[in-house]
Amino acid sequence: MKRHLFLLIALFSFPLAGITQVSGNTSDEWSNILAADVNLAFGPSSTATWDPSVGFRMQVSDHFRVGIGDVSFGSADLLSGTRYAIMGGPVVEYLASISDDLSYSILAGLPFQNRWGAGIPHSFGTAPYGSASVDYYFSSVFSLAGILRIQYIATEAYLRTPRILPSSALIAAFGLGFHFYF
């Protein structure tokens, strides 16, 4: 049941995006974006798991950006030592304006992860996600974003500092984004 939360939010959000695309007023000043995001979600025993990352997205039309996101490094202390991971993957973003200094976006990403260390062979993982964010523009080159993100662990395991999550775990995270435009 809980796993359907992602679909529920996606179905609920995309019609809103469509409405705004028609009636909204997309700014001509939107451009390529360099993003530094961090999101937080609590696991069992209130364990805080963090996922800081950077990304780059290129504007390809009034309402779409594509690029690379979730470029990140993480680690987790395991029974046999410290396990490390690097990750990153393609992202697609739909964006629309709310007002002169507010915009929102819907983003889908597919980060791939390579893990090593702790005496365990290399392994790969992926965890597709969808996120919704609202950006407040402090200037034409910088905005601060509030982010909601739903992520699903599609492979056997996926490292999210400071733990490794098992297959089929669902992460509902909130975060902050520091977005720079150029």
Partner: peptide, 17 residues
């Protein structure tokens, strides 16, 4: 919608410790 979503978020589900 944003605040409603924020209230739902911040947790990892389908994980047993």
């Amino acid at each position: 919608i944003f605040i409603f979503g924020l209230g739902l978020s911040g947790c990892i589900v389908d994980v047993v410790e």
